[in-house]
């Protein structure tokens, strides 16, 4: 299974970003093979509007099954839901720690957005 993480960096040791739309990178971990890749998410950082939607579109196009993020706004959530990507909420921790928590079933799955706009 491939899982995306909204992160400040590009590997397992990187911290999650408290924002989703404006997170620096999206780290993708393949839990079967153990490979870690990452893509740039900064194209949305200067966008006056729609950074969250853009990030969601990016994640959806990665073909992942789930996204782990600290927060997710309503528009981004709508896009992810539409694309069939599960959204899991994590505390402030590293990608590796969040991955462990996901595997151990300790993360909460979001059924709706947990922040208003501008995340």
């Amino acid at each position: 299974m491939r899982i995306a993480f909204a992160s400040k960096g590009d590997n397992r040791e990187s911290m999650l970003d408290e924002r989703f739309g404006r997170a620096a990178r999206i780290v993708v971990v393949d839990t079967d093979s153990g490979t870690v890749e990452s893509i740039d998410n900064t194209a949305g950082i200067s966008a006056a509007q729609g950074a969250g939607i853009q990030a969601a579109e990016r994640v959806a196009n990665l073909g992942v099954e789930a996204l782990v993020t600290m927060h997710c706004g309503p528009k981004a959530f709508a896009v992810l839901k539409h694309a069939g990507v599960e959204v899991w909420s994590a505390p402030s921790c590293t990608v590796g720690e969040a991955l462990d928590m996901h595997r151990e079933g300790r993360l909460a799955r979001l059924s709706e957005a947990d922040v208003d706009t501008h995340w």
Binding site: G50, I53, E57, A60, N61, A78
Partner: peptide
């Protein structure tokens, strides 16, 4: 449509697009 819209008001992710009228 989704690639065209600079405002991200219409988004297609491998499916019929979603529209955000407010944007």
């Amino acid at each position: 449509c989704s690639r065209f819209c600079a405002y991200k008001a219409i988004v297609s992710v491998g499916s019929a697009p979603l529209v955000f009228p407010g944007m």
